[in-house]
Amino acid sequence: MNPAAIPTNPPVATPFFFYLLATVMIIGGILVITRKNAVHSAMALITTLLAQAALYLMLYAPFVAGVQIILYAGGIMVLFLFVIMLISIERTEKERQFNKQWLVGIAAAAALGGLFIAVYTTTTSGRTLFPEGKLSYAEGENTQRIAGLLFDRATGTYMFAFEIASLLLLVAIIGAVVMAKKRI
């Protein structure tokens, strides 16, 4: 790779955008799990996914960001919206929205949160498990390198997994058609 292609000046205002996008994602996530109307939840989830795509861009993952927007926000969420339209929203909106498992939910969240805090604050010989310093800014040909990992015969570590993924999608398509058929 050409060393001159690596940008030497870091992007400006990265912390500001990180905190902005993180706030958008957290608020979107809270809206997803609290809205009565499933369409509103879907809209909040789309906002969260788009903010996450922007975070991918900040992490120098443009290909994953594009896949996130096209496949997640564009494909999967449209599927969700279709199904929400198929089932009757008006009646489900008047029903009770939460089951009586608040205690279990809070307990599980507290346990998992405690686990996360314990892992992320663990120090071995004065250092946390994950370094706190700034991330490097070298970029490379991201999409080509991902394609190399996926398809290249010489360096394609994930070629077999890629084929299995296509098989998984085929099975999922057949499964979805069979499930949604009127008479099986």
Binding site: I26, G29, I30, V32, I33, R35, A38, S41, F80, V83, I84, I87, T92, E95, R96, Q97, F98, N99, Q101, W102, V104, G105, I106, A108, A109, L112, G113, F116
Partner: peptide
């Protein structure tokens, strides 16, 4: 954690 709380407490399958 938000996702876990949503899975455990919501009744609507879509959500």
């Amino acid at each position: 954690l938000l996702g876990v709380i949503g899975v455990l407490t919501r009744r609507n399958v879509v959500i």
